[in-house]
Design a protein around this nucleic acid. Structure first.
Lengths: 194, 194, 194, 194
DNA sequence: TATGAATGAGCGTTCATTCAT
DNA sequence: AATGAATGAACGCTCATTCAT
């Protein structure tokens, strides 16, 4: 039963992602998500508190996976410098290879109300903490500037990458996002290095 | 008469800014804006095509002023390096000194629909072009790296500052944003310098 | 379930007829119709596309019944002359015996917009085609003039009866409409007979 | 001054006719009529009580002229039969030669509310009385049936002609309305003659 | 007389959520 | 657990009319 419950929960999350990606946030009615998931409207409310809860779950589930990948990749990196490089590579390539997810997280879900944005903030915070860890490691290793303001810099890195992805999407994905990894990392490392 | 017309237009724009800042984008009903401006609902439509037109105007008017200040300040800078410094200082201090504006531009208006977001995008684009100009100037001056990818870097700079401001707001403005200018500029210039 | 759905559909159509008859076309708000039908406003839209769709349905449903009665009565008539007589009798008596329907079809629904009027026109067209058939039959039977312009005459008959009904309504129904059948038919037949 | 007043009054009536003919009843806003007439919105209310008053005036003024023409033509007719013929000829030809007027009176103004329809009814009543006079004359002359129900028949004649005109308009005026005079009169006279 | 900026009442429709089955 | 018919609150916009100038 628990696994079945999980299954339907996942079914609805996937359906929500697909519907938002296809029709946009403002056309992602609960009934549409239910239809896409192959369940009745009312069934949604057996698994989610309300509509917002679905959207938060989409973000948490999908970005959770992404952040998991960061974690393992980063912890395996021999140096902080390499960790920064891998982080950016994963950030760009994962979103480039999953356009619907990119579209939903970068564009659509940002049109949501404050409560959802706070929830999204929590997920993003996890990622930002991860960046911070890498920065601290770099300082400790001696490869990054000892006077680095890690609290500030973690935001600058995240904001920079985030904007790079959003611009790539809005431009219509006319160029390769992965090709921007080198330029981005070069800029970051010069700013970070001791 | 023209000045009176201008007055009422401005009155409504200011009212909209205030209402969105106080009640949030999704609670900024036209009737509420009208009430705040001290005019009848119908009067709004003598000055604006529709609700969206009000919001776009808020953005354009308010950010227009801001970008104007960037322009003059940057063109007067003796060096590209100094231009970057001034740009970041204005970006942070202007928003820090106008919290409602910061709140509306960073948080509330991003919840809007696609058409408004496109309009906002146009204003932001102006700013990003300005950043690009500074970068080119720095390369020409020889103070910035000759191999700098200006198309990419302008986004990284904008995204980094944008995120710094948003985080400061969401944190509840518990610290000084202006105090972050030095750290930000230090990071940028190391990444840019030849 | 199907019958229940039918029931609610009919409930709303009847409510609309009653509301329009009582309050007039311009005061027949959707919320009023919903209230009269004993359903929520939103329920209306489970059965009708929009307000206009309700009104068209009122016309179609109600006049559809009427025209059905014409059909059977006319086809059973032994002669075209008798068909004309029955047609007029049904036309007058049915509307005389259903004043709300008469009021709505003759007065209120004619105040509607073009799209609805077109829809109404389609229903009326059916009736006019029926008249035409009777006229052709009379010509074939030899009882009506062989040189009769059926395309024109069908309009004259319909217009004449329509005006007789409307005048009777506007006069406040101070006289019997059924009593006018003889005079009307007499006039028609003299105009038609060979 | 009186003539000037009359002038502006006429100006507005003509403008209203034109606007309704061009844009339809539901798009004939007061401000549009004012613009067409070359006066300010407020000026309208110096000459008319309200919007309805304008529309009633359009009908009264324009149909008044028409009925005046009926009057003279009919009174000059040597026989009642000829009067019927002339009446129908004028009815059809005047409207055929003034399509905007036909369109406004037959289609657009009928979408109006009850009060206006009552006012229109008054104008039409004048016409119907005229028809009645002709019928009485025919009976007195002995050319029309002595048992003719004039109260009823006047409606039948008016309704028949009215429908003929409306159908011609709705059909897109693909045929000549004047060509229908003979068929119409033939039908009428057979119905009327002793 | 004439203006036209300002008014504000009025309404069709959507959709997240509920609940009887 | 699952259904889906029913709910009803919420809101942008139009336009006839007014009135200060």
């Amino acid at each position: 039963m628990t696994s079945k419950k999980k299954e339907k929960y996942q079914l609805i999350v996937e359906a929500a992602l697909k519907v938002i990606a296809e029709h946009g946030y403002h056309n992602a009615q609960v009934s549409r998500i239910a239809k896409e998931a192959g369940v009745a409207d009312g069934t949604i409310y057996l698994y989610f508190k309300n509509k917002e809860d679905i959207l938060i779950s989409v973000f948490r589930e999908k970005l959770g996976e992404l952040i998991g990948r960061f974690h393992s990749s980063i912890s395996e990196s021999p140096t902080a410098e390499e960790a920064i490089r891998r982080m950016c590579r994963i950030h760009y390539s994962e979103l480039e290879n999953n356009v619907p997810l990119a579209y939903v997280t970068q564009i659509e879900l940002r049109q949501s109300n404050l409560e959802l944005r706070h929830a999204i903030g929590d997920v993003v915070k996890t990622y930002i903490h991860l960046i911070e860890q890498v920065l601290r490691r770099g300082v400790e290793e001696g490869s990054f500037r000892p006077d680095l303001d890690v609290k500030l810099t973690r935001l600058l890195l995240f904001g920079a990458m985030d904007e790079a992805v959003t611009s790539w999407l809005i431009s219509g994905r006319k160029y390769s996002l992965s090709d921007q990894v080198e330029g981005t990392v070069e800029f970051f490392l010069r700013g970070l290095k001791a």
